[in-house]
């Protein structure tokens, strides 16, 4: 649906502009058939919206440039990430597509369908929409300009011209290739050898392995898993005084506040990306 007879903007440009108007910093379009080549049955766009043909992926909610320069790690963990912006812009795009073009649309649920499994991979959608590529840092999608971004998606039955995946990988950066050649490591691998391992080959990612299970306590220190584990520990504790120390202690208090206030639920660890050179120039432009 590129362009129209009046020479007006294409439908693709129109929906992307709506995403930006709604607060996204970037938007891209992925074809469902591209996503289906990788996503397993049960986790495809068509499993969420019957007849989905396109996915409008919105990006935003990234840390401000100042957030990368906190006095300690904790403040960035508290405010570094705003989950609502990418999701809200996707929600608005979905309404816009329905109202303006008359096709069904719905936001892709951004949460988990059960346990740690998502409804669908927003990372895969972002990749197929050309918003970035997989990185050594746990497969986080890195964007050339912004580095770390968060994603939302609007699924639609509307056929839209897809942007498709980027031809050139964003990761590794030239600085990382130089470090690999000198020291056999990269800034992200060096930052978190517990969660990350991998190898660069001929200036590209040869392979990367990410231990999501080990990343959880760092990335979601006081989120749902932490709350459940502490609750279980408190319930199992027969001594009333010790039970009090668990429930009234600072960690459980923070976990409860996280659930209520919704901050600190995720993205509480930025260590693998703190030294990532992708997007660094933008971060250093400000005084």
């Amino acid at each position: 649906m590129s362009g129209d007879e009046t020479g007006g903007p294409s439908a693709e440009a129109d929906v992307k502009r709506e995403a930006i108007r709604a607060g996204a910093v970037l938007a891209g379009i992925a074809a469902v058939e591209d996503i289906d080549r990788f996503a397993p049955p049960g986790h495809r766009p068509g499993d969420i919206l019957r007849g989905a043909r396109s996915v409008v992926v919105t990006a935003g909610g990234q840390p401000t440039r100042g957030s990368w320069h906190p006095g300690s790690a904790r403040p960035q963990a508290s405010v570094g990430y705003n989950r609502s912006i990418a999701g809200n812009s996707a929600y608005r795009v979905a309404h816009y597509v329905e109202d303006r073009f008359g096709y069904r649309a719905m936001p892709c649920p951004s949460g988990q369908v059960a346990g740690h499994y998502p409804y669908a991979s927003l990372k895969l959608m972002a990749e197929m929409a050309g918003l970035g590529t997989r990185s050594m840092a746990g497969g986080v999608i890195l964007n050339e300009t912004y580095g770390l971004l968060y994603f939302g998606a609007a699924l639609t039955t509307m056929p839209l011209q897809a942007d498709g995946p980027l031809a050139t990988p964003v990761c590794p950066d030239q600085a990382c290739i130089r470090q690999w050649e000198k020291k056999g490591t990269t800034p992200c691998l060096e930052a978190c050898p517990t969660c990350l391992s991998g190898q660069l080959e001929d200036g590209r990612i040869g392979w990367m392995e990410y231990r999501q299970d080990l990343c959880f306590p760092r990335a979601q220190t006081t989120a749902m898993d932490s709350f459940q584990k502490l609750l279980l520990a408190a319930m199992a504790e027969s001594d009333e005084e010790r039970r009090k120390m668990i429930v009234c202690g600072s960690h459980f208090t923070r976990a409860v506040r996280s659930l209520a206030y919704s901050a600190e639920l995720s993205a509480q660890c930025f260590e693998c990306l703190r030294r990532c050179p992708v997007g660094r120039r933008r971060r250093h432009e400000l005084k």
Binding site: A73, P187, P217, C269, R275
Partner: peptide
């Protein structure tokens, strides 16, 4: 232990520097 680990990492890494 996660908070302590993150603060220790933070102390050893200058934001935006590649360490290369």
């Amino acid at each position: 232990e996660a908070d302590g680990w993150k603060e220790a990492r933070f102390g050893g890494a200058e934001p935006g520097e590649t360490g290369g």
